[in-house]
Design a protein around this nucleic acid. Sequence first.
DNA 1: TTATTGTCATTAATATATTAACTAAAGTCC
DNA 2: GGACTTTAGTTAATATATTAATGACAATAA
Lengths: 140, 140
Amino acid sequence: MRKFDDSIPLKLLKAREASMNFFRPVLQEIPLTEQQWRVIRALYEYKELESKQLADLCCILSPSLTGIISRLEQQGYIQRRKSTEDQRRVLISLTQQAIDMFERVSPTLEARYRAMAEQFSDENMELLHDLLNKLCKIKP
Amino acid sequence: MRKFDDSIPLKLLKAREASMNFFRPVLQEIPLTEQQWRVIRALYEYKELESKQLADLCCILSPSLTGIISRLEQQGYIQRRKSTEDQRRVLISLTQQAIDMFERVSPTLEARYRAMAEQFSDENMELLHDLLNKLCKIKP
DNA sequence: TTATTGTCATTAATATATTAACTAAAGTCC
DNA sequence: GGACTTTAGTTAATATATTAATGACAATAA
């Protein structure tokens, strides 16, 4: 039978942990959680997003996102407004404070990312990106 | 600057989600959570483990494991005993009920795993295993 | 227009993740 | 032996994950 460690989901989890070890210390000093940073990073790039789009991009389920959003709002990092056309939709964007914080912190994280890529090798990096893209497309 | 989607940690997360979609429905019918199954699977293979070893194998932090263990114990799936040499250590093992359940359910999960591997291709599977092993070894 | 159906975000309930603090039991040094 | 340090497991507090259910709004069909 297949051995315990011969499991793709488990290895994906462990590999993610290994990669996150490069970034966690930086985020802890801000302080921001991993998920909060993911949300902020998405909003920095897309400017304004609906809650559902944000959840999909960040791979966070809606009920979790509701809490993350409200905590980030309390910290002054994001603002929300209701869509004028569709009163159900909520549009979310970063505050200037968040933009400033992002631009201050991201160089450090980018440096950590390069350190990780260097240790892993750019070639493996590219290979892994491809494989993960393919894996994301499989459907049960 | 690096784009939002060009992130290894995020892709590892999304790939893991895609792969777990093959197994979640099976586990939900037992019902067991993903983490509970990971613990049971490890114990089925290693027979008896200390809490710390189990945490390391399953990639679950000790405080989380404490809760998972106590819930599995309540459900009659595991039993614990104190080590005789070192009174700090707790040794955990499956009950017969859990062994029976495991042997009943695992064929279905193995079939799902083969379906996943087939869709992804065995070649990609092997390549991904290698890359993830390498990635697990990097240190900040 | 009304009744039906579907969608978006949230709430509720439970399980897990994360960091810090704590307890009990070993191990170490003197 | 006694003070110090370390280790295994747990508890505490907060954040997130997961599924089900809800409320408000929108789209659609009769």
